[in-house]
Design a protein around this nucleic acid. Structure first.
Lengths: 198, 198
DNA sequence: ATGTGTTTATGATTTTGATCATATTTAATT
DNA sequence: AATTAAATATGATCAAAATCATAAACACAT
C-alpha cells in the first residue's frame, strides 16, 4: 500500500466503479498502477468452458495489477469490482517516477510482490494435488492468517460464497458444499447460519 | 540476474553442490540471496503422500529464493541441485546493501519477481481446472516462450522427463505419458527419440 | 405477502485421472 | 559385454470429483 497523499501528489486520480464493472481485461497492456480506496476488486480468469478462477481479492489499501508494469507483459487476468468501489489510479510513468524518488516505497512494493509470490507458491503446490478438503482448508488458513490476520479457533468468518471458494480452489460448488460439511463434522471448521468459520 | 562481479564485490561466495544436495528446506528462515552460476536447481514441495510438486527450475544466471528475504516469511519450498551446480551466495544484509546502493539492480530484481508472479498466475488458473492435456501444453508453452524464448513450431526441445512434467503440473507419470501421446496424435507436439518437442 | 433470484443442499450417475501391475526400451555403471 | 537402474509404455481396475437433476432455504425488491 502506498500512502494516498503521496499518490495524489504524483497526479493519481480516484475513480468510481460499480459492482460488476471491469477495470481491465486479460491480454490488455498494463498502463496504470491501481490501489483500492474502498470496496473490493477481484482478479479472475475464465477458462474455455466458462469456469471462473479467482486469482485474488483485493480490499481497501491493497494494490493490484502491478506485476505487468515491471515485467512488460500483458495482464494475465481480468479485474472486476465485486462491490461498488473507489480505486486510485496512477499512470505507469508517474508510478515509476514515484518509485525512483522514494526508494523506501519501492522496497515496500517489492515486499508486496514477494508476499503475493509466497501465497501463489503455497497455493500452487496445494491446489495441484491435494484432495478438496485440503485445498479448502489451505485457502481459508491463508486468508485468515495473511489477509484478515486474525487468530484463534473459528475466529475467522469467511465472507465468501461456496461458489467463490470453489472459484478460488478450482473445485465445483457441490464439491465445496460437501467438503465443508465433512470438515465441520471433523471439527476443522464451524458453519453458523450458512457462513463458514475457521 | 545480478552481475557476478557486483555480487563478489559485496562479499558473495561461490559454493559447489552435488546432484541431490539440499540448499535449504521448506520452513527454513531465509538468510541468503542465491544465484545459479552453473548447473540446475529446483525448488519443490512434497505433500503428505510423498508426491513432489516442482515450483520452478533455475538455470545459469537465474536467482531463486529471494521472495522470503523481502517478505520476512519462511521458505515455502525446498531447494535441491538437479545436477552438480555452482551457486553464488550473498548474505541478506549485504544483498540489501547492494540493492540500496544500486537502485537499477533493485528494479531488475523487482522485475524478476514480477515475471515469476506472472508465471504463477497463469499456472494457477491453468492447473486449477483444465484437463491434463491443457495443463501440459500451457507449461510447455510457458517454458518455450518465457524461459527458453524460442519461436516456431516444434522448435522447443523439452528437456524434462515425463516425471518432471508430471511434477510441474501435478499429474501422474502415466497420465503425462498418455496425454503427450494424445497430443502428438492431435499434432500439438512431436515426440522424437522419446523427447517432446513443442 | 408475494414473487424472483441467489445460495445452499442432496441424491444418482458418469467420467476421468489415479492407482496397480507389469513390460519394454534406453541409459548408466561395473 | 553384462548388469543394473531409470524412463517410457500400456492395459485393467478403482475411486473420487464432476456432472446432472432437482429441491429447499434464504435475501431482497416490489
Amino acid at each position: 500500500m502506498i500512502k494516498e497523499n503521496l499518490l495524489l501528489d504524483f497526479g493519481a486520480k480516484k475513480d468510481l466503479y460499480s459492482k460488476g464493472d471491469q477495470l481491465f481485461n486479460e491480454g490488455d497492456a498494463a498502463v496504470n498502477y491501481y490501489q483500492v480506496a474502498s470496496g473490493e476488486i477481484k482478479m479472475n480468469n475464465y477458462n474455455l468452458d466458462g469456469k471462473e478462477f479467482i486469482q485474488g481479492i483485493f480490499s481497501v489499501g491493497e494494490s493490484f495489477g502491478e506485476p505487468p508494469l515491471f515485467a512488460n507483459v500483458k495482464y494475465p487476468a481480468n479485474a472486476e469490482a465485486i462491490t461498488d468501489s473507489e480505486v486510485i489510479i496512477l499512470s505507469k510513468e508517474k508510478f515509476f517516477q514515484l518509485l525512483t524518488s522514494n526508494p523506501e516505497v519501492h522496497l515496500e512494493v517489492t515486499e508486496t510482490l514477494a508476499r503475493r509470490l509466497y501465497y501463489k507458491a503455497i497455493m500452487a503446490s496445494e491446489i495441484s494435488s491435494q484432495e478438496p478438503e485440503h485445498r479448502i482448508l489451505r485457502i481459508l488458513d491463508y486468508l485468515k492468517k495473511h489477509v484478515h490476520k486474525v487468530e484463534g479457533k473459528f475466529s475467522f468468518k469467511v465472507d465468501l460464497t461456496r461458489q467463490q471458494i470453489a472459484d478460488l480452489t478450482g473445485l465445483r460448488v457441490e464439491t465445496v458444499i460437501r467438503a465443508t460439511k465433512a470438515l465441520e463434522k471433523k471439527g476443522e471448521l464451524k458453519i453458523k447460519e450458512r457462513k463458514v468459520y475457521r
